[in-house]
């Protein structure tokens, strides 16, 4: 009986949290247009979440592509279809690995930065001080950061994909001497604009999800040192889980 009661409490808690996040999302969206009226703030945030994540995204993109090249070559070789490496690699990166891995990396680097920054502002009363100065922190702090995130994510995704494919090519063509012409032509004949759109759309959706979680956790962090730390951890965990769930849903829809 006790177990059931706990379960019910957890369910209720979960539903409440979902509702809270949804309402928060609504508030952020409401402030978004006004945030864009201060482009300097948004540019700053695109820099913080995007430009500063470039190194990690490009590095990981390269290595993911290279690993894909290695594994893919090994796999396809058993069927005598090595020239399909271009196709296989490109499709895997464009449709799945690109958006998902970028989202996870984004959550880890930019998401935690956002959450801890905002959480710290909460803990040191900066957000309250703003409210006292009759400045809405949603407009001034949260919305620009959210906007920066949703702009940066699709761009990062696309960069990851491009470098990933380069990585596949690096291993497949340079190392394993797969015929370059067939590598690219097979890829070209199998990958369409709609596949790329899929990847970009996923990037956008993941961007919204991860940015939202990051700013939500930061804004609602308990105003103590541990609270901020917890908020950062939760950001990564929840972003990762949500990204993968959304990935399944989106893939199912777009297939």
């Amino acid at each position: 009986m006790h177990f059931l009661r706990e379960l019910w409490d957890n369910v209720r808690e979960f539903v409440t949290t979902v509702g809270s996040v949804a309402l928060f999302f609504g508030r952020v969206l409401a402030q978004l247009p006004r945030a864009f009226l201060r482009p300097s703030l948004v540019v700053e945030q695109v820099h913080n979440t995007g430009a500063l994540s470039l190194v990690i995204i490009m590095t990981c993109g390269l290595f993911v592509g290279m690993v894909l090249g290695l594994t893919g070559y090994d796999l396809l070789q058993r069927f005598g279809s090595e020239e399909a490496l271009g196709t296989a690699g490109a499709l895997a990166v464009v449709k799945e690995l690109g958006p998902v891995v970028t989202a996870l990396l984004f959550a880890g680097r930019a998401g935690t930065a956002l959450a801890s920054e905002i959480g710290l502002m909460r803990a040191t009363d900066q957000l309250t001080a703003m409210e006292m100065m009759a400045v809405d922190p949603m407009r001034r702090v949260i919305a620009p950061r959210f906007a920066g995130g949703i702009i940066a994510m699709p761009l990062l995704t696309v960069i990851f994909i491009a470098i990933g494919i380069f990585g596949v090519q690096l291993v497949g063509v340079q190392q394993f001497k797969v015929d370059a012409a067939s590598f690219w032509s097979q890829m070209r004949s199998s990958v369409g604009l709609d596949d790329i759109m899929e990847g970009v759309i996923k990037g956008c959706v993941f961007g919204v999800a991860c940015s939202l979680i990051a700013v939500y956790e930061g804004y609602n962090a308990t105003p103590t040192a541990e609270g901020v730390g917890r908020a950062t951890t939760r950001t990564v965990v929840i972003s990762a889980v949500l990204t993968l769930i959304l990935d399944y849903i989106l893939t199912a829809i777009m297939l």
Partner: peptide, 30 residues
């Protein structure tokens, strides 16, 4: 609230702006 001013326990200055910008903040916003 613009007719009130509040001084918080730990100052609650905006950490990513310098002193000048902190004091200018309410002026710029309002």
């Amino acid at each position: 609230r613009r007719r009130m001013g509040m001084l918080f326990q730990n100052g609650a200055l905006l950490t990513d702006e310098d002193v000048f910008e902190n004091v200018a903040f309410p002026l710029r916003e309002h």
